[in-house]
């Protein structure tokens, strides 16, 4: 079926295929919509709201909203960038994010998003929540201080690994990633090579014995902003 249609993002004409979300159509056209919880190949979770765009004048998450003929999408506007900045700053203050010694620093999508948005300090009060670390597993650890509740590990474990290792428990500020076991991560059938481990955008789920492997200056986001690989495809 080739019923392609067109819509616009920030005035630029974009071709969409039936079934595509705004995010997918934008990405195919080389337009980067900032996002955190969305990961290609995983079911969109729509939880971080960083990809919020104005769609025909209403705020919608681009990762879950299907694209449609004639849609008018605003993405890179001052107002939306300010909202995204606020969302990312809130994620920084509601966890315990110590970038200077985090193994993920330089490859972290939360940090990279803050760089891209030009954040030098959050304007919100730091909450310093008491969060737990689970280092029981021989290959993998969870540091919940760094978790942003994106849901990627939950979906990847279920859909890609077929294991159901992770799930959310609790609500609001008490929500956290739990493991599907009597006690600890070591009691699950998780492997260090699982998709659920690789998809973590931050340093919350990491493979042990591999920290700081890439020198500063050569890490993913040292030189170029996150999203520039998508923007370089733009015609």
């Amino acid at each position: 079926m080739s019923a392609t249609f067109t819509f616009t993002i920030d005035g630029k004409e974009i071709k969409g295929q039936p079934g595509q979300t705004i995010m997918e159509a934008a990405e195919a056209a080389g337009v980067y919509i900032p996002r955190l919880c969305y990961s290609k190949d995983l079911r969109p979770h729509g939880s971080c709201r960083v990809c919020t765009c104005m769609v025909n004048g209403r705020p919608q998450a681009a990762c879950t909203q299907p694209a449609a003929e004639g849609m008018v999408v605003e993405n890179n506007t001052d107002e939306l960038q300010a909202i995204r900045r606020d969302l990312v700053e809130m994620l920084f203050v509601e966890g315990n994010h110590f970038c200077p010694f985090c193994e993920k620093s330089g490859n972290c999508e939360l940090q990279a998003m803050a760089y891209r948005l030009g954040i030098t300090a959050p304007k919100f009060p730091y909450l310093w929540p008491d969060r737990s670390v689970d280092a029981s597993h021989p290959e993998v650890f969870i540091d919940r201080n760094r978790c942003i509740l994106c849901g990627r590990c939950v979906n990847a474990s279920k859909d890609a690994d077929g294991k159901n290792v992770f799930q959310f428990v609790g609500r609001g500020e008490h929500k956290r990633v739990a493991v599907n076991a009597e006690a600890n991560l070591a009691d699950t059938d998780l492997k260090g090579t699982d998709r659920a481990v690789a998809v973590c955008p931050v340093g919350a789920i990491l493979v042990k014995h591999k920290g700081y492997a890439t020198p500063v200056g050569r890490r993913s986001y040292d030189q170029k902003p996150i999203g520039s690989e998508i923007e370089s495809k733009r015609k």
């Binding site: 970038c99 200077p100 010694f101 985090c102 620093s105 330089g106 940090q111 803050a114 760089y115 891209r116 030009g118 954040i119 030098t120 500063v216 040292d222 030189q223 170029k224 902003p225």
Partner: peptide, 9 residues
């Protein structure tokens, strides 16, 4: 500040 000059580590 340019992109390379904002770093948290």
């Amino acid at each position: 500040l340019s992109y390379e000059l904002i770093k948290y580590d």
